[in-house]
Amino acid sequence: MRQIFFIFLAVLTFISCEKRSEDAAVADMSISAVKLSSPSQPAEDKNIVIPQKIIKEAFLKFETNDLEETYNQIKTAIATNKASIQNDSQEKDYGTITRRLTIRIPSQNFDAFLESISKGVSYFDEKNISAQNVTEEYIDLNSRLNTKRKLEARYIEILQKASKISEILEIEKQISAIREEIEAKEGQLKYLESRVSESTVSIEFYKTIAQKEGVKISYGSKIWNAIQSGFFSLSDFLLSLISVWPFIVLFCVLAYFIRKRFKRKKI
Protein backbone atom coordinates (compact mmCIF):
# COMPACT_ATOMS: atom_id res chain seq x y z
CA MET A 1 0.00 0.00 0.00
CA ARG A 2 2.85 2.38 0.79
CA GLN A 3 4.28 1.65 -2.65
CA ILE A 4 1.02 2.71 -4.30
CA PHE A 5 1.01 5.93 -2.28
CA PHE A 6 4.52 6.81 -3.45
CA ILE A 7 3.62 6.04 -7.06
CA PHE A 8 0.57 8.30 -6.79
CA LEU A 9 2.75 11.14 -5.47
CA ALA A 10 5.17 10.59 -8.32
CA VAL A 11 2.36 10.98 -10.87
CA LEU A 12 1.19 14.23 -9.29
CA THR A 13 4.77 15.53 -9.47
CA PHE A 14 4.93 14.42 -13.09
CA ILE A 15 1.73 16.40 -13.89
CA SER A 16 3.06 19.67 -12.48
CA CYS A 17 6.38 19.26 -14.25
CA GLU A 18 4.70 18.47 -17.56
CA LYS A 19 2.44 21.53 -17.36
CA ARG A 20 5.41 23.85 -16.68
CA SER A 21 7.57 22.40 -19.42
CA GLU A 22 4.88 21.84 -22.07
CA ASP A 23 4.74 25.39 -23.49
CA ALA A 24 8.52 25.84 -23.34
CA ALA A 25 9.11 22.58 -25.18
CA VAL A 26 6.71 23.49 -27.98
CA ALA A 27 8.17 27.00 -28.39
CA ASP A 28 11.65 25.58 -28.91
CA MET A 29 10.59 23.34 -31.79
CA SER A 30 11.69 24.25 -35.32
CA ILE A 31 8.88 24.59 -37.84
CA SER A 32 10.92 23.42 -40.82
CA ALA A 33 12.18 20.25 -39.17
CA VAL A 34 10.32 19.39 -36.02
CA LYS A 35 10.82 16.02 -34.35
CA LEU A 36 7.98 14.58 -32.31
CA SER A 37 9.81 12.69 -29.60
CA SER A 38 10.08 12.34 -25.83
CA PRO A 39 12.64 10.85 -23.47
CA SER A 40 10.62 7.64 -23.23
CA GLN A 41 10.24 7.21 -27.01
CA PRO A 42 12.56 5.01 -29.08
CA ALA A 43 15.61 6.68 -30.58
CA GLU A 44 14.41 6.13 -34.16
CA ASP A 45 11.34 8.40 -33.56
CA LYS A 46 13.65 11.39 -33.26
CA ASN A 47 14.14 11.34 -37.03
CA ILE A 48 10.42 11.95 -37.76
CA VAL A 49 10.00 15.31 -39.55
CA ILE A 50 6.69 17.17 -39.76
CA PRO A 51 6.02 18.48 -43.30
CA GLN A 52 4.75 21.99 -43.81
CA LYS A 53 1.01 22.34 -43.13
CA ILE A 54 -0.56 24.92 -45.46
CA ILE A 55 -4.25 25.90 -45.70
CA LYS A 56 -4.99 27.21 -49.20
CA GLU A 57 -8.06 29.27 -50.09
CA ALA A 58 -9.13 31.29 -53.14
CA PHE A 59 -11.93 33.63 -54.20
CA LEU A 60 -12.55 34.45 -57.87
CA LYS A 61 -15.10 36.85 -59.37
CA PHE A 62 -15.46 37.52 -63.08
CA GLU A 63 -17.94 38.31 -65.88
CA THR A 64 -18.93 35.84 -68.58
CA ASN A 65 -20.99 35.98 -71.76
CA ASP A 66 -22.44 32.48 -71.27
CA LEU A 67 -23.26 31.26 -67.76
CA GLU A 68 -23.95 27.67 -68.83
CA GLU A 69 -20.73 27.34 -70.82
CA THR A 70 -18.69 28.71 -67.91
CA TYR A 71 -20.41 26.33 -65.49
CA ASN A 72 -19.66 23.35 -67.77
CA GLN A 73 -16.00 24.41 -67.92
CA ILE A 74 -15.87 24.54 -64.10
CA LYS A 75 -17.57 21.11 -63.84
CA THR A 76 -14.94 19.63 -66.16
CA ALA A 77 -12.17 21.08 -63.97
CA ILE A 78 -13.91 19.69 -60.87
CA ALA A 79 -14.05 16.18 -62.33
CA THR A 80 -10.44 16.32 -63.59
CA ASN A 81 -9.05 17.47 -60.23
CA LYS A 82 -11.25 15.21 -58.02
CA ALA A 83 -13.01 18.16 -56.40
CA SER A 84 -16.60 18.49 -55.15
CA ILE A 85 -19.22 21.25 -54.99
CA GLN A 86 -20.23 22.20 -51.45
CA ASN A 87 -22.59 25.04 -52.31
CA ASP A 88 -24.30 26.20 -55.51
CA SER A 89 -26.58 29.28 -55.63
CA GLN A 90 -27.91 31.64 -58.30
CA GLU A 91 -29.63 35.02 -58.20
CA LYS A 92 -30.98 37.63 -60.62
CA ASP A 93 -31.27 41.37 -60.03
CA TYR A 94 -31.97 44.41 -62.23
CA GLY A 95 -28.71 44.35 -64.16
CA THR A 96 -27.09 40.89 -63.76
CA ILE A 97 -27.56 37.16 -63.33
CA THR A 98 -25.03 35.76 -60.83
CA ARG A 99 -24.00 32.20 -59.91
CA ARG A 100 -21.89 31.32 -56.86
CA LEU A 101 -20.03 28.06 -56.22
CA THR A 102 -18.07 26.84 -53.20
CA ILE A 103 -15.70 24.00 -54.10
CA ARG A 104 -13.52 21.68 -51.99
CA ILE A 105 -10.47 20.32 -53.75
CA PRO A 106 -7.44 18.21 -52.77
CA SER A 107 -4.66 20.64 -51.92
CA GLN A 108 -2.21 19.03 -54.35
CA ASN A 109 -4.62 19.92 -57.21
CA PHE A 110 -5.24 23.50 -56.07
CA ASP A 111 -2.98 25.27 -58.59
CA ALA A 112 -4.03 23.06 -61.51
CA PHE A 113 -7.70 23.69 -60.75
CA LEU A 114 -7.25 27.49 -60.65
CA GLU A 115 -5.39 27.36 -63.95
CA SER A 116 -8.19 25.35 -65.58
CA ILE A 117 -11.05 27.64 -64.58
CA SER A 118 -9.06 30.79 -65.42
CA LYS A 119 -8.84 29.87 -69.12
CA GLY A 120 -10.94 32.22 -71.24
CA VAL A 121 -11.37 34.84 -68.50
CA SER A 122 -10.38 38.28 -69.83
CA TYR A 123 -9.96 39.81 -66.38
CA PHE A 124 -11.02 39.16 -62.80
CA ASP A 125 -13.13 41.63 -60.84
CA GLU A 126 -11.60 39.99 -57.76
CA LYS A 127 -8.93 37.33 -57.36
CA ASN A 128 -7.75 36.55 -53.84
CA ILE A 129 -5.50 33.58 -53.10
CA SER A 130 -4.22 32.87 -49.59
CA ALA A 131 -1.88 30.27 -48.08
CA GLN A 132 -1.90 30.07 -44.27
CA ASN A 133 0.97 28.19 -42.65
CA VAL A 134 -0.43 26.26 -39.64
CA THR A 135 2.59 24.01 -39.08
CA GLU A 136 3.32 25.52 -35.67
CA GLU A 137 -0.29 25.06 -34.53
CA TYR A 138 -0.22 21.46 -35.81
CA ILE A 139 3.00 20.74 -33.91
CA ASP A 140 1.62 22.31 -30.74
CA LEU A 141 -1.51 20.15 -30.85
CA ASN A 142 0.54 17.01 -31.51
CA SER A 143 2.89 17.75 -28.63
CA ARG A 144 0.10 18.43 -26.15
CA LEU A 145 -1.81 15.37 -27.33
CA ASN A 146 1.21 13.11 -26.82
CA THR A 147 1.73 14.53 -23.32
CA LYS A 148 -1.88 13.86 -22.36
CA ARG A 149 -1.71 10.31 -23.74
CA LYS A 150 1.42 9.54 -21.69
CA LEU A 151 -0.22 10.97 -18.61
CA GLU A 152 -3.31 8.84 -19.17
CA ALA A 153 -1.14 5.72 -19.50
CA ARG A 154 0.59 6.48 -16.17
CA TYR A 155 -2.77 6.87 -14.41
CA ILE A 156 -4.00 3.59 -15.88
CA GLU A 157 -0.90 1.85 -14.47
CA ILE A 158 -1.63 3.25 -11.02
CA LEU A 159 -5.29 2.28 -11.29
CA GLN A 160 -4.34 -1.35 -11.88
CA LYS A 161 -2.37 -1.39 -8.62
CA ALA A 162 -4.84 0.56 -6.47
CA SER A 163 -6.89 -1.33 -3.88
CA LYS A 164 -8.78 1.31 -1.87
CA ILE A 165 -12.14 2.50 -3.24
CA SER A 166 -11.27 6.15 -2.56
CA GLU A 167 -8.02 5.85 -4.52
CA ILE A 168 -9.76 4.09 -7.41
CA LEU A 169 -12.48 6.75 -7.63
CA GLU A 170 -9.95 9.61 -7.54
CA ILE A 171 -7.77 8.04 -10.23
CA GLU A 172 -10.77 7.28 -12.45
CA LYS A 173 -11.87 10.91 -12.09
CA GLN A 174 -8.44 12.09 -13.25
CA ILE A 175 -8.44 9.62 -16.15
CA SER A 176 -11.90 10.83 -17.26
CA ALA A 177 -10.77 14.48 -17.27
CA ILE A 178 -7.62 13.63 -19.24
CA ARG A 179 -9.65 11.56 -21.73
CA GLU A 180 -11.94 14.56 -22.40
CA GLU A 181 -8.90 16.74 -23.10
CA ILE A 182 -7.45 14.09 -25.41
CA GLU A 183 -10.68 13.81 -27.41
CA ALA A 184 -10.96 17.60 -27.72
CA LYS A 185 -7.40 17.90 -29.04
CA GLU A 186 -7.94 14.95 -31.40
CA GLY A 187 -10.99 16.77 -32.82
CA GLN A 188 -8.99 19.97 -33.31
CA LEU A 189 -6.21 18.02 -35.00
CA LYS A 190 -8.62 16.26 -37.39
CA TYR A 191 -10.25 19.57 -38.31
CA LEU A 192 -6.87 21.12 -39.00
CA GLU A 193 -5.77 18.15 -41.10
CA SER A 194 -9.04 18.34 -43.07
CA ARG A 195 -8.48 22.00 -43.95
CA VAL A 196 -4.89 21.27 -44.92
CA SER A 197 -5.71 18.25 -47.08
CA GLU A 198 -8.60 19.97 -48.91
CA SER A 199 -8.53 23.56 -50.14
CA THR A 200 -11.58 25.82 -50.54
CA VAL A 201 -12.25 27.75 -53.75
CA SER A 202 -15.17 30.20 -53.96
CA ILE A 203 -16.20 31.25 -57.48
CA GLU A 204 -18.64 34.02 -58.41
CA PHE A 205 -19.38 34.57 -62.11
CA TYR A 206 -22.10 36.74 -63.62
CA LYS A 207 -23.69 37.85 -66.90
CA THR A 208 -24.86 41.41 -67.58
CA ILE A 209 -28.48 41.68 -68.77
CA ALA A 210 -29.13 43.76 -71.90
CA GLN A 211 -30.39 47.28 -71.11
CA LYS A 212 -33.59 47.01 -73.20
CA GLU A 213 -34.45 43.74 -71.49
CA GLY A 214 -34.00 45.44 -68.16
CA VAL A 215 -36.32 48.30 -69.25
CA LYS A 216 -39.08 45.88 -70.33
CA ILE A 217 -38.90 44.00 -67.09
CA SER A 218 -38.88 47.22 -65.09
CA TYR A 219 -41.89 48.71 -66.99
CA GLY A 220 -43.97 45.56 -66.55
CA SER A 221 -43.10 45.48 -62.87
CA LYS A 222 -44.23 49.08 -62.48
CA ILE A 223 -47.65 48.34 -64.06
CA TRP A 224 -48.17 45.31 -61.83
CA ASN A 225 -47.09 47.27 -58.74
CA ALA A 226 -49.54 50.06 -59.64
CA ILE A 227 -52.43 47.56 -59.94
CA GLN A 228 -51.53 46.00 -56.62
CA SER A 229 -51.21 49.40 -54.96
CA GLY A 230 -54.69 50.48 -56.23
CA PHE A 231 -56.27 47.26 -54.99
CA PHE A 232 -54.70 47.60 -51.55
CA SER A 233 -55.79 51.27 -51.33
CA LEU A 234 -59.40 50.33 -52.14
CA SER A 235 -59.30 47.54 -49.57
CA ASP A 236 -57.97 49.91 -46.92
CA PHE A 237 -60.75 52.41 -47.70
CA LEU A 238 -63.50 49.79 -47.39
CA LEU A 239 -62.03 48.50 -44.14
CA SER A 240 -61.96 52.05 -42.79
CA LEU A 241 -65.66 52.48 -43.60
CA ILE A 242 -66.52 49.23 -41.88
CA SER A 243 -64.62 50.21 -38.75
CA VAL A 244 -66.68 53.48 -38.37
CA TRP A 245 -70.13 52.09 -39.28
CA PRO A 246 -71.76 53.12 -35.95
CA PHE A 247 -70.92 56.75 -36.64
CA ILE A 248 -72.31 56.51 -40.17
CA VAL A 249 -75.62 55.05 -38.89
CA LEU A 250 -75.84 57.76 -36.22
CA PHE A 251 -75.17 60.47 -38.82
CA CYS A 252 -77.92 59.10 -41.10
CA VAL A 253 -80.48 58.99 -38.26
CA LEU A 254 -79.68 62.59 -37.21
CA ALA A 255 -79.89 63.77 -40.80
CA TYR A 256 -83.31 62.11 -41.18
CA PHE A 257 -84.78 63.79 -38.07
CA ILE A 258 -83.31 67.19 -38.93
CA ARG A 259 -84.74 67.01 -42.45
CA LYS A 260 -88.15 65.93 -41.12
CA ARG A 261 -88.18 68.85 -38.68
CA PHE A 262 -87.41 71.38 -41.40
CA LYS A 263 -90.26 69.99 -43.49
CA ARG A 264 -92.71 70.53 -40.59
CA LYS A 265 -91.64 74.18 -40.17
CA LYS A 266 -92.25 74.87 -43.85
CA ILE A 267 -95.79 73.53 -43.55
Rank of each mutant, 00 (worst) to 15 (best):
I48M: 15
I48D: 12
I48G: 13
V49E: 14
V49H: 05
I50D: 04
I50A: 05
Q52S: 07
Q52M: 12
K53D: 10
K56V: 04
E57A: 07
A58K: 01
A58M: 00
F59N: 00
L60Q: 05
L60V: 05
E63G: 09
T64R: 00
T64W: 12
T64F: 09
T64D: 09
N65E: 12
D66F: 13
E68D: 15
E69P: 03
E69L: 13
N72F: 10
I74A: 00
I74R: 01
K75G: 02
T76F: 10
A77G: 08
A77C: 00
I78C: 05
A79R: 11
T80S: 08
N81M: 05
N81H: 14
N81V: 01
K82C: 07
K82Q: 15
A83H: 01
S84H: 11
I85D: 00
I85R: 00
I85V: 01
Q86L: 02
Q90K: 13
E91R: 02
E91A: 02
K92R: 09
D93E: 13
D93V: 09
D93N: 05
Y94I: 09
Y94Q: 14
G95L: 11
T96R: 15
L101P: 02
P106S: 02
S107D: 06
S107M: 02
Q108P: 00
Q108G: 08
N109E: 12
N109S: 11
F110N: 12
A112D: 00
A112W: 04
F113A: 00
F113T: 03
L114T: 06
L114E: 03
E115C: 06
S116F: 01
S116A: 12
I117T: 08
K119I: 14
K119R: 09
V121M: 07
V121E: 04
Y123D: 11
Y123A: 14
F124G: 12
D125T: 08
D125W: 07
N128I: 10
N128C: 05
N128M: 05
N128T: 07
I129Q: 00
I129E: 04
S130M: 00
S130L: 04
S130I: 12
Q132D: 09
Q132Y: 02
E136S: 00
E137T: 10
Y138E: 15
I139A: 03
D140N: 04
L141T: 13
N142K: 14
S143R: 00
L145E: 06
L145M: 03
N146C: 01
T147Y: 04
T147N: 14
R149E: 14
R149C: 12
R149L: 15
K150V: 09
L151C: 05
E152G: 07
E152N: 14
A153M: 13
A153V: 14
Y155I: 08
Y155S: 06
I156E: 14
I158S: 12
I158N: 04
I158L: 13
I158E: 15
L159N: 13
L159A: 15
Q160D: 10
K161V: 07
K161I: 10
A162P: 09
A162W: 00
I165W: 03
S166K: 11
E167C: 15
I168K: 07
I168M: 06
L169C: 10
E170L: 13
E170N: 09
